[in-house]
Design a protein around this nucleic acid. Structure first.
Lengths: 252, 252
DNA sequence: TTTGACCTTCACGTAACGTCAACGTGTGTA
DNA sequence: TACACACGTTGACGTTACGTGAAGGTCAAA
């Protein structure tokens, strides 16, 4: 047999056969006078075995070890590891599919704000009505989208629970008003009394359980999302948040 | 934010961020006077979105299309395709695990002859007893191993059914005897009468349903396993098989 | 001033081959 | 005999999503 016959017998490309020679998975056969490789039946058996194992999902490197060590690790052990690995892959894919299903449940799916449907509804509510044009509402939505994207699914549900009181009509109206007040005070002087007043109203509006964990997490990590957020605000708005933080930390 | 802060905020490496810039998945931000990239909150949102989609199993190329076309294919469609693809992957892994389970059921698993347990038992029987040392039995085992490796699982079961009659004690003894006779005639003259006699006995021994499909498949493909097989036999043995083929073709 | 911890771009390495390129070999046909 | 055509040979670049140096500039603290 020459290489093409061997390849088509086993159902692979000649390139694959040569590749396996290169990796040492298949011994180089004798050469004819013209330099062509000359294969025997045994080579077909060896090649088909390599394909079998490779087809099970084993890497060619692992495969070389299995074939070489010959006794090193007991084939059964290797195959059991492989099975465990495949099980993990299945699990990972299942998780991805579950997340996909959640996203696909969203009614008007668009490339921005890839948040789960429930969160999308909350975001819509928060910047609806009077706050529809509010720049600060937009910033807040941006930040909440980021938080949603970064949180793991377990936290997601928890955060949604905590935000639910904010979506009741009365709280919503109050939230919109706070957005507008933040917009108004954008360029206020840093010693404007309304800043402290607004910070107090914000502290009263936001549930402690929602904000406190954020503060805690914030201090821990190196890169701080609070820094990124306040960099987007005007100095006056940042001052409002500084006051808010002081108030909230006092409550801890 | 500089690149390190952005990266740790979203939980990726700085290399990844730069890679996404290179691929056009993330817009290059402004640069500071010293050449450092300066990111805004919006970039974190964009980056986290890219990670979300990539984490679902989408390739970065597809992702670029999704983000660029913006309206081209409707995100929902893309995600549905992705889900279908993931489903196929799950199925493929399940098949691999099923094959693994079959292999792991084999009692003495060793790297040679990776055949399913039932086939392994048949192979053991065929070259047991009187045929334990038979060179031809060894050749036959080699070929059957190859066939088993190359056959798809559906055929596998069928072939095993067809071989079952050969494993009954009486047939087995007769098979061993035939192996020994093939060994004896290895270097016989091509016009030795015993060759035709042996071919006849072989034809009587082998079930038609087992051999006929092999002959048919053999003629069709370019690379012929029969060629490879007869290349391993002595001229006299090859002659036996030629005669056997003639007999069998006559029966078709 | 030196030490770190950042940042910059450039470029090779990874897995398992596919796919030219550039070339020799062997056979059938005009 | 000449030419086409199918097959073989080695060598090397392309693919995916970054990791991992290399070689060097920037900035703040000790």
């Amino acid at each position: 047999m020459r290489i093409g016959e061997l390849a088509s017998l086993v159902g692979v490309s000649t390139r694959t056969v040569r590749h396996y020679h290169h990796l040492g998975l298949l011994p180089e056969p004798e050469r004819l006078a013209n330099g062509y490789r000359e294969y025997r039946l045994r080579d077909a058996v060896l090649l088909s075995r390599v394909r079998q194992l490779a087809g099970l999902g084993m890497s060619l490197d692992e495969l070389r070890d299995v074939l070489a060590e010959d006794q090193g690790k007991d084939l059964r052990e290797v195959l059991q590891e492989l099975d465990a690995d495949l099980a993990r892959q299945q699990e990972a894919i299942a998780v991805r599919r579950a997340r996909l299903a959640v996203l696909l449940a969203e009614a008007d799916l668009h490339p921005d704000s890839l948040v789960p449907p429930e969160m999308a509804a909350v975001l819509r509510d928060l910047s609806a009505g009077k706050a529809a044009e509010s720049p600060f509402a937009k910033l807040d939505r941006e930040m909440l989208t980021l938080m949603s994207n970064l949180a793991d699914p377990a936290d997601q549900a928890h955060v949604l629970d905590l935000m639910r009181p904010l979506t009741k009509p009365a709280a919503l109206a109050r939230g919109h008003e706070l957005y507008l007040r933040l917009d108004e005070l954008a360029d206020a002087s840093l010693d404007d009394e309304r800043l402290a007043e607004l910070a107090g109203d914000l502290a009263a509006h936001l549930p402690d359980e929602l904000v406190l964990p954020m503060i805690e997490k914030s201090g821990a990590q190196g890169a701080d999302w609070l820094d990124a957020l306040s960099a987007e605000m005007t100095p006056a708005q940042a001052e409002v948040f500084r006051l808010l933080m002081v108030t909230l930390k006092g409550r801890m």
